[in-house]
């Protein structure tokens, strides 16, 4: 009875989208940006290697690239670099997981209870503003020089962006969608599972992405302040010995850890939020 065109399009459409091809122009663009990025990297590395010596900057201020590489080898052989890196990576991941699990859980619980949200929101705001890393010395006083303080700092620092993002998203779930679900006789839990949870997923993922970068900061501060393991410890140790190359290396490795976590999250996000329309591609 109605439009034949739509029905006709229906037959072709699925095949067309399944084979998602990148148009030629876009592929060229991507190639160009990759080449430019790599070129820039090469330039920076060259400058790093040759500028400090050319300008007579001493090694303990800015070590050259080769200084850093040989220091890296030494750290790997004699300073137990692998163990330090793994320890930091482990606590970053652990702190991130615990913190975001707690943050998301509390966010969803408060999102379902307007009363408790109102009661707790001033405290949440205050804690959110308070600089979490400043708690590190306190935690050390309470728990001693072990891995508990750095884990706590990380959990605390990860917790808030996740909580706030989830809470914000729960407040803005489409009322009409919820009414629709209620009209279809969904229980409170059903509404949460089938409407609220998926609606808030984009915000949760955004919160997790922010949290992943903060997790590295949390662990680093924890390790800087107390303890004798991890890359943060190597930074304070290297700093004490005026070994700038060691500090540089530790910073680079910390960045790598953060980058890996962040990229993993972006991948997961792209996979589960595939239904969001993309600007291009």
């Amino acid at each position: 009875m109605t439009d034949a065109t739509a029905t006709q399009a229906g037959a072709n459409a699925p095949a067309a989208t399944r084979k998602r091809t990148i148009p030629g122009g876009l592929r060229m663009d991507r190639l160009n940006t990759t080449v430019a990025s790599l070129g820039l990297l090469a330039l920076v590395l060259l400058a790093w290697q040759y500028l400090p010596t050319a300008l007579d900057v001493p090694k303990y201020i800015i070590p050259t690239l080769s200084d850093c590489l040989s220091e890296l080898k030494r750290m790997w052989l004699y300073e137990g670099l692998t163990a330090h890196t793994l320890s930091t990576a482990l606590y970053t991941l652990l702190g991130f997981l615990i913190g975001s699990l707690l943050g998301a859980t509390l966010g969803y619980l408060l999102g379902m209870s307007a009363f408790w949200e109102k009661v707790l929101s001033p405290y949440i705001l205050a804690l959110q503003i308070a600089p979490k890393v400043a708690f590190a010395p306190l935690f050390i006083m309470w728990f001693g020089y072990n891995s508990v303080p750095k884990l706590l700092v990380t959990v605390l620092i990860v917790f808030f962006p996740v909580l706030v993002n989830v809470l914000q998203a729960m407040r803005t779930v489409d009322r009409d969608l919820i009414n629709l679900a209620r009209a279809y006789n969904l229980s409170r839990l059903g509404v949460f599972r089938k409407i609220e949870m998926p609606s808030t997923l984009p915000n949760l993922m955004a919160g997790l992405r922010i949290a992943s970068t903060l997790a590295v900061i949390g662990v680093t501060v924890g390790e800087l302040v107390g303890g004798n393991t991890g890359l943060g410890y190597l930074i304070s140790y290297g700093g004490g010995q005026a070994n700038a190359a060691m500090v540089f290396n530790a910073i680079v490795l910390l960045t790598v850890i953060g980058f890996v976590l962040y990229s993993a999250l972006v991948r997961i996000e792209n996979r589960i939020l595939h239904y969001l329309p993309k600007a291009h591609g």
Binding site: A6, G10, A13, P14, L276, P277
Partner: peptide
């Protein structure tokens, strides 16, 4: 409702009328 073939599509891939 004349939507044959669109069962596996997502809402953003459909027009307003569809």
């Amino acid at each position: 409702c004349h939507l044959d073939g669109f069962d596996r599509q997502y809402p953003y891939q459909l027009s307003g009328g569809m």
